[in-house]
Design a protein around this nucleic acid. Structure first.
Lengths: 240, 240
DNA sequence: TCTCTTTATAGTCGTCGAGACCATTAAAGA
DNA sequence: TCTTTAATGGTCTCGACGACTATAAAGAGA
């Protein structure tokens, strides 16, 4: 780690890859692009790009997130580093080290294909997809790791609110858990646990309620300031 | 992410930094080296080094771990990627992206200073050290992140056994939790919870017991195959 | 040798959280 | 109006956990 010459080493390219999730129609979706060039032309891949010389990986990831989703307000979105993938042969062209991130987007708008010419879509996430074509590079692994991380963080953090708009009902919040975990939750028990957890959510003043849907109108809540949950909100069974 | 020239970008140097923990005299210790060169000459730092062109970050981390600790059997040690630090100015000399790892070592031998000329020591980890000189680079942050991760993983994985020799008593295992969490645990309740968790530990056949210490001889156990704990083994209070 | 200290191990008891389940309320839709 | 749907409120039981007490088996010191 001492006295080194910046050209004495094989140059590493550093990129970011993004696993961007949203909830749509009660199901978990992930943002995937279709590659236009070799290698892996025509394959689906996670959006991503190079880290520029003057930015950190986090900055690059947020820039890419804005470019790929077309969202203007990307500052408030949840973005979290997942891990770094550095196998020497993960990109056949040259040595690429990729820092993977997970992002959570509420109310995702349709995407038109971002900065690259490649198409981009919100595709349903299905954990074990037998018939699906594998993603480019090691992105199947990255995506699986990202899903594991998000599912685990729902248990002991208030992360689920990042999938919701600023004001939401407990039913919407419950759908987040159900979509990510792929499990049914009892509405009454879920409500009791969420409200018993200090700082998870707080009611919107003025007894605001959401009408227009079916059934009894639900009360509206905002995200609370809590990041760590005590006690955790455990998922039903020993799923991965 | 298409058609790029390997010299069209500022070359990034990629390094690994290691936060290596062990338990000694009932307390948590961390392996720190003393830097011999600028910048930060004389400061303590986490051990680490460059990733070579033909190795992954994980491979580089394990190689550095062997070099710095002087351990011959480094294959079975717990080594886990923490996160990647990529702020553009984190190293004043050039652009360095560092992948940080956490390693757990049982029965740590003394270290003589590794491949670098710098001295290396197992220093007590004290979470809030007011009077201590800060570490080099952003290593205070890295070390704090590593400690958080290890503490959290003790709760819901069988990680604690990685701090223990192949055969250990429940008292030794309890000391691991106490050292990392900085909290006292009731021996009887700890025993009940550990034995009630399937796959955490298994008794050594032949009713082997450890004698020679004070008190009643304790039964010996081995690490079980469980990686995830159901239910988790929660720490006493809402500590960080 | 006898006693004290230390640590492991066993058991008890009260509290609390969690899941299963039922009942009621209030809206939309036919 | 009647049915359907979803939110909300309540009860019950079980199991986990923390606090606590008791017993067993070794070393240390008198």
């Amino acid at each position: 780690m001492q006295g080194y010459d910046k050209y004495a080493f094989e140059p590493f390219a550093v990129t970011v890859d993004l696993a961007v999730f949203t909830i749509r129609e009660g199901g978990l979706r992930v943002l995937l692009v279709e590659r236009g060039e070799q290698p892996y032309a025509g394959r689906r891949a996670l959006p991503g790009g190079f880290v520029q010389p003057d930015e950190s990986a986090e900055t690059a990831a947020r820039r890419e997130l804005a470019e790929e989703t077309g969202l203007s307000d990307v500052a408030g979105l949840h973005l979290e580093q997942l891990r770094t993938y550095s196998e020497p042969d993960r990109d056949p062209r040259m040595r690429v080290v990729s820092v993977a991130f997970t992002a959570l987007v509420p109310n995702a708008p349709d995407v038109y294909g971002g900065s690259d010419a490649a198409r981009a879509d919100w595709l349903p996430y299905t954990e074990h997809r037998p018939g699906y074509a594998p993603l480019a590079f090691d992105h199947d692994q990255v995506l699986a790791d990202a899903h594991d991380r998000v599912g685990a963080k729902l248990e002991y953090t208030g992360l689920a609110t990042a999938f919701c708009p600023p004001e939401f009902t407990l039913g919407e919040l419950r759908q987040v858990y159900q979509a990510v975990w792929g499990a049914e939750l009892d509405p009454a028990n879920f409500r009791r646990k969420v409200l018993a957890t200090p700082g998870l959510v707080e009611p919107v003043p003025g007894a605001a309620r959401l009408t227009g849907g079916r059934g009894k109108p639900a009360a509206l809540y905002r995200a609370g300031g809590a990041t760590a949950l005590h006690p955790p909100l455990l998922r039903p069974e020993g799923r991965s």
